[in-house]
Amino acid sequence: MTIVAHELKASYAFIERNFFLTRRYWGWEIAFLVYSVAGALSISLIGADQGSPTLLLTLMVGAIFWNYLSVVFSWIAETISVERWEGTLEYTMMAPIRRWSQLLGSVLYAMVYGLVHTTVILIVLILFFPQLDLAGANPVTVLAFMLLGSFSFVGIGMIAAILPLLYVERGAQMTFVLQSCLLLVSGVYYSVEILPPWMQVLSHLSPATYVLHGVRAGLLKGTSVVDLFGDVWPLLVMGVVFIPFGLWAFGRAERYAKRTGKLKRVG
């Protein structure tokens, strides 16, 4: 119990530190929010231009919820790169904490940050498109898929966090490659059915595919979570498989970095 309490305290340290960083970089946070809102609006306006409320909502959901998943993914993936940039990585690695508590803290903060960020974008878009009728939407389904999506994205984020550990100079940038591949195959702005068959196979391996399908069904048709079980179980399985795998892979990468001296260098 004491060990768990100690580890949870350590997790809280990362939540608090990330909050402090967000607070200090408030100017950048506003700029990022403006960027995200402008991006979501630009994409949604394609639907408005076509005069199709369904297309508008489809694109809007894609833009908003891809933003959420990207934010969660980025915070987790940057767990290492931020510390490498600041030069604090060795101190954090020396601390008597388990790696899961570090990643748990990063994940929890990422989810809260992502929810706040996404809510602001959602409100702006609803105000911008007053013609949208969301009366039949099922908010429980939307929230459930956001949380399930975060859960399944954690493992992928952990795997992405390995890259800055192994590749000192360009590791952080390499996480963008992974992110863009997920964007390509997950049906964010189009149906996965239009993808070539081999890409459709990959789309089944991306949690974003199921999250977006679930959110769209909940928002456009008011479908309940129970009726979307076909999208729920893959997300649960991915979380259960990817998180332990991510932790295992991170541990292996950390040992490799300690053997080769890669913790020392500042990128």
């Binding site: 350590a10 809280y12 340290a13 608090e16 530190r17 960083l21 600041e86 030069g87 101190y91 601390a95």
Partner: peptide
């Protein structure tokens, strides 16, 4: 090595909690 934008107290608080 510190989080340069954070204050000494914020940096120390983070380290102490770890």
């Amino acid at each position: 090595a510190f989080f340069k934008k954070l204050s000494p107290m914020e940096n120390l608080l983070f380290a102490a909690r770890l």
